[in-house]
Amino acid sequence: MQISLADIKRGQEGVITDVSSIHIPLKLLEMGCLPGNFVKLVQMAPFADPMYLNINGTHLAIRKETALHILIEISNV
Rank of each mutant, 00 (worst) to 15 (best):
A45S: 13
V42P: 02
A48T: 08
I16M: 00
I8S: 10
V39E: 06
K9Q: 14
C33F: 03
A45Q: 13
M51Y: 06
S4C: 09
E13R: 14
Q12S: 09
F47H: 12
A6V: 10
I24L: 13
L41Q: 07
F47Y: 14
V19M: 07
V19P: 12
M1T: 05
L41P: 03
A45G: 10
V15Q: 13
L28H: 09
L60T: 04
D18P: 00
K40P: 08
A6G: 00
L68V: 10
L53W: 05
Q2F: 03
I8P: 11
R10M: 12
L5P: 07
E73K: 05
S4L: 04
G36L: 08
D49A: 07
I55F: 10
M44N: 11
M51I: 06
I3G: 02
L41T: 01
A61N: 09
M31L: 11
V77W: 14
H59F: 10
D49W: 00
A6N: 12
G36S: 11
V42W: 08
C33P: 00
S20T: 07
H59T: 09
M51D: 04
E30H: 12
V15T: 15
R63W: 06
H69E: 06
T66S: 12
Q2T: 15
P46F: 03
S21C: 13
L60Y: 02
R63V: 04
L60R: 02
A48L: 05
R63C: 10
L34H: 01
D49M: 11
P25N: 08
S21A: 13
D18M: 12
T58I: 00
V77T: 09
L26N: 14
D18I: 10
G57L: 05
L29W: 07
V15E: 14
C33G: 09
E65N: 08
I3N: 01
P35L: 13
N37S: 12
N76C: 07
P46M: 03
P46S: 09
L71Q: 09
V19Q: 06
D7K: 09
Q12M: 11
Q43I: 01
S21H: 14
R63I: 06
E30G: 09
K27W: 01
K64V: 02
I16G: 01
Q43T: 07
E30Q: 14
L41G: 01
A61S: 15
H69T: 02
L5G: 05
